[in-house]
C-alpha cells in the first residue's frame, strides 16, 4: 500500500515536471515529436533507477558513517556522470539495439536535473532502499507521462496559426501552464 501511495503521489500529484519544475530543459527541448519523447523518457527511467540506487548506497554506506554529508553534491554529480558514461559503454557492447534507441539521449542526461534532484530528494525524505527505488521509477514514469502528453499537444500545435511573437517557446510554455493546471486536479487524491 505504501508503495502504491508513493507511486500515485509521484506520478500525478507531485508530478516532477509540472509541479516540481525539474527537467524543464528536456521537457521543452525534445518534445517536438512523440517518438523522441518516448526515447528520452525510456533513457531517463533507466538511468534514474540505477543512479538513485547507487547514490543511496553511497550516502548510507560511505558519506553517513564517515560524517562527510557536505560532500553530497560533489559525490552525487560525479557518480551520475560516471554512471551515464558506463551505461553508454555497456549498452553499446551488450545490447546494440537498445543503444541505437537510447544512444542519442544518454549524454544529455548528465545535466538533466531530475536525476540529481531525485537522488537528493530520497535522502531528504529519509526513504528506505525499496521506497527510494519505487520513488525513482514513479518519478521517471511521471516525467515520461508529462513529456509524452506534451509532445502530442505540440505536434498538433505546430499546425495552428499563432501570433508571430508567441511562436515557439512562449506558446509552448503557456500550453505547459494549462497542462500543469489540469494536473492540479489530482491534488488531494492521496
Amino acid at each position: 500500500m505504501e508503495y502504491i501511495i508513493i507511486f500515485i503521489a509521484a506520478v500525478f500529484v507531485n508530478n516532477i515536471v509540472l509541479a516540481q519544475f525539474l527537467g524543464i530543459c528536456p521537457f521543452l527541448g525534445v518534445s517536438k515529436k512523440v517518438e523522441t519523447a518516448v526515447g528520452m523518457s525510456a533513457a531517463v527511467a533507466f538511468v534514474m533507477t540505477i543512479s538513485t540506487l547507487t547514490t543511496y548506497l553511497m550516502q548510507k554506506l560511505v558519506l553517513d558513517p564517515l560524517g562527510l554529508g557536505f560532500m553530497q553534491t560533489i559525490s552525487f554529480i560525479l557518480i551520475i556522470a560516471a554512471l551515464v558514461q558506463m551505461v553508454e559503454i555497456i549498452l553499446k557492447k551488450v545490447s546494440p539495439a537498445l543503444y541505437q534507441a537510447l544512444g542519442v539521449f544518454l549524454p544529455l542526461i548528465t545535466t538533466n536535473c531530475t536525476i540529481l534532484g531525485v537522488a537528493i530528494m530520497v535522502i531528504q525524505k529519509d526513504y528506505t532502499l525499496l521506497s527510494s527505488i519505487v520513488f525513482a521509477i514513479s518519478s521517471a514514469v511521471g516525467f515520461g507521462l508529462a513529456l509524452i502528453i506534451f509532445s502530442g499537444i505540440r505536434e498538433q500545435l505546430s499546425l495552428t496559426r499563432t501570433p508571430k511573437a508567441m511562436q515557439g517557446i512562449p506558446i509552448a510554455l503557456i500550453t505547459a501552464g494549462i497542462l500543469a493546471m489540469a494536473f492540479m486536479g489530482f491534488n488531494g487524491i492521496v
Binding site: F21, I171, I174, I178
Partner: peptide
C-alpha cells in the same frame, strides 16, 4: 505551478 509557465510565456 501553472502561473510560472504562463507568466514566463507571456
Amino acid at each position: 505551478a501553472p502561473g510560472a509557465f504562463i507568466v514566463l510565456g507571456f
